[in-house]
Design a protein around this nucleic acid. Sequence first.
RNA 1: GCCGUUGUAGCUCAGUCCGGUGGAGCAAUCGGCUGUUAACCGAUCGGUCGUGGGUUCAAAUCCUACCAGCGGCGCCA
Length: 449
Amino acid sequence: MIFLRNPNIFLCESSRELMPEQTFTRAAEVIPSEDSVTIRGWIYRIRKMKDKIFVVLRDASGIIQCIGQEDNLNPEAWKMLNEAAIENYIIVEGNPVEDNRAVNNVEVKLTDFKLMHKGEIFPIAKDKSKEFMLDNTHLFVRSFQSTNVWKVKASVLRASREWFFENDFYETTPPILTGSACEGGSTLFSLKYFDSTAYLSQSIQLYLEALIYSLEKVYAITPSFRAEKMRTKRHVNEFWHIEGEEAFVDFEGNMKIQEDMVAYIVQYVLEHNEKEFRELKRDTSVLESIKAPFKKVSYKEAIDTLNENGFDLQWDDDMKTEEERALSNIIGEPFFVRDYPSKHKPFYVKLHEDDPKWCYSADLMAPEGFGELITGGQREDVLDTLVRRIQEEGWEIEDYSWYVDLRKYGSVPHSGFGLGAERLTWWLCGLDTIQETLPFPRTRNRVYP
RNA sequence: GCCGUUGUAGCUCAGUCCGGUGGAGCAAUCGGCUGUUAACCGAUCGGUCGUGGGUUCAAAUCCUACCAGCGGCGCCA
């Protein structure tokens, strides 16, 4: 294949190789017209009558109703139409006409019908349980319930990249295979790495921290793995992590970056995914009112608010799911919980200079009871303090020697955060479980298909 | 790991409390059919009731052991 300078010419040439002399109209783009259209896709629904058959064709863009009548089709096409079944691959040709009895008020009167692949009976029918769908994920990914979510998620990833690009962040590619833990040892997946042991990354944060010394503002979008044996609506064992790290940015500046980015993503999906939200029956009124800056509540204020609403918590109690959900519903808009008690946060979080029982860590919470989207904060940049914190947690300094090294050569104040792509998509789409935001969710009991 | 719960047709479920020849809808097959919207109507096909053991004249149903799934919590993005 010749690579031509003009990318459009290149695309033309390559698609001609795939499907010569043929242009197809996308299902959602069919409009009433004098001209005949050719569409390819899969059968979404088919309804057979004596002398006419309604076939609803699905492609990546959406659906279009077609009507095949015995009088208008050659015998071979009529025969194939009668044999056709759900999810068969078809190519149809016909005249698009306005008709308010059809979806989108357009219908294609077929002049030709080709059954390209009949195949076997599609196993997914009307009645379906969540377990059955998970067993058949490879087929369920064709459903609109799924594809609408994949489209929103694609927007989330695209919008976050756009935001980073517009704000002078470099995209980087840190390793997913690693020789040491990030947050501790308890939830790592380990694997044989030649003659030693390696782990799947839980977060590439520590590597991003190394990269700020040259690129200053960096981000990466990578899978993260947590070997936790939990079964909840908001956890999966493999998820996509959108992580940013910024030199010369303090705790406040870090929160500003997060709220600007999340507000941008929300705005982007509202503009680009209106159809998907409508089909997912997502009421977007909460999303429409979201603007940066977000409300900020200190951990202490959060505890007080909860206690005023019937809880009985101490200032340094760890907030549980029930409490976080309650707080999210009380506040009703995205908000940060800031300045956590240090004892609940890992060694790399910077402590308050005047009172080390608090630290510069903040969680961004989604409203409507969805809870945490982001954890972020300022990192400890003083060598001695970092070493002491690692020792206090009982880790071996040797395991973190490269990370400790970063504070020896031109250490600078810096901050960062980790946003869960699935958490965000889950909330934006208003789904029941986070598992629905992944085509092949990895959970405690499921790595197949 | 803890607590709860479920296992009956390819799929979704009823039947279990109170033992007496296993049901429905969907799918599939065949037939019918008025422009259908997960079309509709009729018929047909389809099950060692999770597995082993026990009680009983008789077990999907009662007892027991085991297996598997699901939900919630611990955690966190």
